[in-house]
Design a protein around this nucleic acid. Structure first.
Length: 196
DNA sequence: AGCGTGATCTTT
DNA sequence: AAGATCACGCTG
Protein backbone atom coordinates (compact mmCIF):
# COMPACT_ATOMS: atom_id res chain seq x y z
CA UNK A 1 0.00 0.00 0.00
CA UNK A 2 1.34 3.40 -1.00
CA UNK A 3 0.44 6.43 1.04
CA UNK A 4 -0.61 9.64 -0.72
CA UNK A 5 1.79 12.56 -0.66
CA UNK A 6 1.27 15.67 1.40
CA UNK A 7 0.39 17.67 -1.73
CA UNK A 8 -2.62 15.41 -2.24
CA UNK A 9 -4.47 17.40 0.41
CA UNK A 10 -3.41 20.81 -0.91
CA UNK A 11 -6.28 21.31 -3.35
CA UNK A 12 -9.63 23.09 -2.95
CA UNK A 13 -11.94 21.35 -0.47
CA UNK A 14 -14.72 20.37 -2.87
CA UNK A 15 -12.15 18.92 -5.24
CA UNK A 16 -10.60 17.00 -2.38
CA UNK A 17 -14.00 15.57 -1.46
CA UNK A 18 -14.12 14.02 -4.94
CA UNK A 19 -10.48 12.93 -5.03
CA UNK A 20 -10.87 11.09 -1.73
CA UNK A 21 -13.55 8.82 -3.18
CA UNK A 22 -12.04 5.41 -3.85
CA UNK A 23 -8.96 6.10 -1.71
CA UNK A 24 -8.27 3.89 1.28
CA UNK A 25 -8.42 5.14 4.84
CA UNK A 26 -6.39 3.06 7.25
CA UNK A 27 -5.74 3.04 10.96
CA UNK A 28 -3.00 0.99 12.60
CA UNK A 29 -3.75 0.23 16.23
CA UNK A 30 -1.00 0.09 18.87
CA UNK A 31 -1.08 -3.73 18.81
CA UNK A 32 -0.52 -3.75 15.05
CA UNK A 33 -4.10 -4.47 14.02
CA UNK A 34 -4.83 -2.83 10.67
CA UNK A 35 -8.24 -1.32 10.01
CA UNK A 36 -8.85 -0.35 6.42
CA UNK A 37 -11.79 0.89 4.37
CA UNK A 38 -12.46 2.43 0.98
CA UNK A 39 -13.92 5.92 1.07
CA UNK A 40 -17.28 5.83 -0.70
CA UNK A 41 -19.04 8.99 0.55
CA UNK A 42 -17.78 12.46 1.53
CA UNK A 43 -19.01 15.99 2.15
CA UNK A 44 -17.13 19.26 1.80
CA UNK A 45 -17.36 22.02 4.44
CA UNK A 46 -15.78 25.40 3.92
CA UNK A 47 -15.25 28.13 6.50
CA UNK A 48 -15.88 30.94 4.08
CA UNK A 49 -19.52 31.44 3.04
CA UNK A 50 -20.79 28.01 4.09
CA UNK A 51 -23.13 28.45 7.06
CA UNK A 52 -23.29 24.71 7.65
CA UNK A 53 -19.58 24.66 8.45
CA UNK A 54 -18.67 24.69 12.13
CA UNK A 55 -16.06 27.34 11.45
CA UNK A 56 -18.10 29.77 9.40
CA UNK A 57 -18.15 32.26 12.28
CA UNK A 58 -14.51 31.78 13.13
CA UNK A 59 -12.22 29.75 15.29
CA UNK A 60 -13.42 28.24 18.56
CA UNK A 61 -12.06 25.64 20.96
CA UNK A 62 -14.09 22.92 19.29
CA UNK A 63 -13.25 23.64 15.66
CA UNK A 64 -9.65 24.76 16.03
CA UNK A 65 -8.16 21.76 14.26
CA UNK A 66 -10.04 22.78 11.13
CA UNK A 67 -7.54 25.63 10.89
CA UNK A 68 -4.53 23.32 10.95
CA UNK A 69 -2.53 22.15 7.96
CA UNK A 70 -4.15 20.03 5.25
CA UNK A 71 -4.07 16.38 6.22
CA UNK A 72 -4.91 17.06 9.86
CA UNK A 73 -7.78 15.09 11.36
CA UNK A 74 -10.77 16.92 12.84
CA UNK A 75 -12.95 14.81 15.14
CA UNK A 76 -15.96 16.20 16.97
CA UNK A 77 -18.81 14.90 19.10
CA UNK A 78 -22.46 15.41 18.26
CA UNK A 79 -26.00 14.33 19.14
CA UNK A 80 -24.82 13.14 22.52
CA UNK A 81 -23.54 9.89 20.99
CA UNK A 82 -21.49 10.17 17.86
CA UNK A 83 -18.03 11.17 16.73
CA UNK A 84 -17.47 12.48 13.21
CA UNK A 85 -14.26 12.15 11.24
CA UNK A 86 -13.05 14.93 8.96
CA UNK A 87 -9.92 15.47 6.92
CA UNK A 88 -8.77 19.06 7.09
CA UNK A 89 -8.14 20.99 3.88
CA UNK A 90 -7.22 24.54 2.85
CA UNK A 91 -3.99 26.24 3.89
CA UNK A 92 -3.12 26.62 7.55
CA UNK A 93 -5.23 29.27 9.32
CA UNK A 94 -8.03 28.82 6.79
CA UNK A 95 -10.99 26.60 7.66
CA UNK A 96 -12.05 23.70 5.50
CA UNK A 97 -12.58 19.96 5.85
CA UNK A 98 -14.02 16.89 4.21
CA UNK A 99 -16.40 14.81 6.31
CA UNK A 100 -15.89 11.09 5.77
CA UNK A 101 -19.45 9.76 5.65
CA UNK A 102 -19.01 6.12 4.71
CA UNK A 103 -16.37 3.46 4.21
CA UNK A 104 -16.46 0.08 2.55
CA UNK A 105 -14.81 -2.32 5.02
CA UNK A 106 -11.70 -4.03 3.66
CA UNK A 107 -9.51 -5.17 6.53
CA UNK A 108 -9.89 -5.59 10.29
CA UNK A 109 -13.52 -6.50 9.79
CA UNK A 110 -13.85 -8.69 12.87
CA UNK A 111 -12.55 -5.85 15.04
CA UNK A 112 -15.03 -3.48 13.43
CA UNK A 113 -17.91 -5.88 13.94
CA UNK A 114 -16.98 -6.30 17.58
CA UNK A 115 -16.88 -2.52 18.02
CA UNK A 116 -20.31 -2.15 16.44
CA UNK A 117 -21.89 -5.22 17.96
CA UNK A 118 -23.14 -6.50 14.61
CA UNK A 119 -21.96 -9.08 12.11
CA UNK A 120 -23.08 -7.63 8.79
CA UNK A 121 -20.95 -5.78 6.24
CA UNK A 122 -23.18 -3.25 4.52
CA UNK A 123 -24.25 -1.51 7.71
CA UNK A 124 -20.83 -1.66 9.34
CA UNK A 125 -19.49 1.73 8.25
CA UNK A 126 -22.33 3.13 6.13
CA UNK A 127 -22.61 6.38 8.06
CA UNK A 128 -20.31 8.93 9.70
CA UNK A 129 -21.12 7.87 13.26
CA UNK A 130 -20.89 4.19 12.42
CA UNK A 131 -17.42 4.33 10.92
CA UNK A 132 -15.85 6.14 13.86
CA UNK A 133 -17.31 3.58 16.23
CA UNK A 134 -16.11 0.71 14.02
CA UNK A 135 -12.61 2.17 13.96
CA UNK A 136 -12.60 3.22 17.62
CA UNK A 137 -12.04 6.87 16.70
CA UNK A 138 -12.78 9.25 19.57
CA UNK A 139 -11.94 12.72 20.83
CA UNK A 140 -8.32 11.79 21.50
CA UNK A 141 -7.81 11.59 17.71
CA UNK A 142 -8.77 15.23 17.10
CA UNK A 143 -5.76 17.20 15.85
CA UNK A 144 -3.68 14.18 14.82
CA UNK A 145 -2.71 13.86 11.17
CA UNK A 146 -2.29 11.51 8.24
CA UNK A 147 1.49 11.71 8.09
CA UNK A 148 2.46 9.40 10.95
CA UNK A 149 2.13 5.67 11.43
CA UNK A 150 -1.36 5.64 12.91
CA UNK A 151 -3.62 7.16 10.24
CA UNK A 152 -3.02 6.93 6.50
CA UNK A 153 -4.69 7.65 3.19
CA UNK A 154 -3.53 5.12 0.62
CA UNK A 155 -3.42 5.38 -3.18
CA UNK A 156 -6.09 3.81 -5.29
CA UNK A 157 -7.30 4.77 -8.77
CA UNK A 158 -9.51 7.86 -9.01
CA UNK A 159 -13.20 7.20 -9.46
CA UNK A 160 -14.26 8.23 -13.00
CA UNK A 161 -16.49 11.31 -13.04
CA UNK A 162 -19.46 9.37 -14.42
CA UNK A 163 -19.41 7.12 -11.36
CA UNK A 164 -19.51 10.01 -8.87
CA UNK A 165 -22.86 11.12 -7.49
CA UNK A 166 -23.35 14.71 -6.27
CA UNK A 167 -26.06 16.21 -4.12
CA UNK A 168 -27.07 18.23 -1.10
CA UNK A 169 -25.42 17.45 2.20
CA UNK A 170 -27.22 15.39 4.81
CA UNK A 171 -28.48 16.50 8.22
CA UNK A 172 -27.83 20.23 7.96
CA UNK A 173 -30.25 23.16 8.03
CA UNK A 174 -28.29 25.93 6.36
CA UNK A 175 -26.51 26.43 3.06
CA UNK A 176 -28.74 23.68 1.71
CA UNK A 177 -28.13 24.78 -1.85
CA UNK A 178 -24.48 23.78 -1.91
CA UNK A 179 -24.12 20.42 -3.73
CA UNK A 180 -21.12 19.30 -1.77
CA UNK A 181 -21.98 15.70 -0.99
CA UNK A 182 -20.05 13.24 -3.15
CA UNK A 183 -20.47 9.49 -3.32
CA UNK A 184 -19.74 6.46 -5.48
CA UNK A 185 -22.85 5.66 -7.47
CA UNK A 186 -24.30 2.25 -6.72
CA UNK A 187 -21.92 1.39 -3.91
CA UNK A 188 -23.87 -0.51 -1.24
CA UNK A 189 -21.87 1.02 1.62
CA UNK A 190 -23.01 4.58 0.98
CA UNK A 191 -25.13 5.90 3.89
CA UNK A 192 -28.92 5.73 3.68
CA UNK A 193 -29.39 9.26 5.01
CA UNK A 194 -31.45 11.60 2.90
CA UNK A 195 -30.63 15.24 2.10
CA UNK A 196 -32.47 17.88 4.12
C1' DA B 1 -41.80 9.13 12.28
C1' DG B 2 -39.92 9.82 17.02
C1' DC B 3 -36.51 10.19 20.43
C1' DG B 4 -32.07 9.59 23.29
C1' DT B 5 -28.03 12.08 24.75
C1' DG B 6 -24.68 15.74 26.01
C1' DA B 7 -21.35 19.23 24.29
C1' DT B 8 -21.32 23.74 22.27
C1' DC B 9 -22.92 28.06 21.06
C1' DT B 10 -26.26 31.98 21.33
C1' DT B 11 -29.17 34.69 23.78
C1' DT B 12 -30.82 36.61 28.14
C1' DA C 1 -28.15 30.83 33.53
C1' DA C 2 -31.21 29.02 30.21
C1' DG C 3 -32.48 27.45 25.75
C1' DA C 4 -31.66 25.79 21.01
C1' DT C 5 -29.22 23.25 17.94
C1' DC C 6 -26.90 19.45 16.30
C1' DA C 7 -22.46 17.22 9.58
C1' DC C 8 -26.73 10.69 13.81
C1' DG C 9 -28.53 6.04 14.51
C1' DC C 10 -31.86 3.09 16.34
C1' DT C 11 -36.43 1.45 17.44
C1' DG C 12 -41.04 1.05 16.18
Amino acid sequence: MVRVQRQFFEIPTVELAEKLLGKLFARVLPDGTVLRGKIVETEAYLGNGDEACHAWRGKTARNSSMFCMPGTIYVYFTYGNHYMLNIVSEPENMAGAVLIRALEPLEGISFMQRQRGINTLTSLMSGPGKLTKAMAIGPECDGRNLFGNEFLIEESPDIPAEQIGTGRRIGISRSLELPWRKFILGNPHVSKGKPS
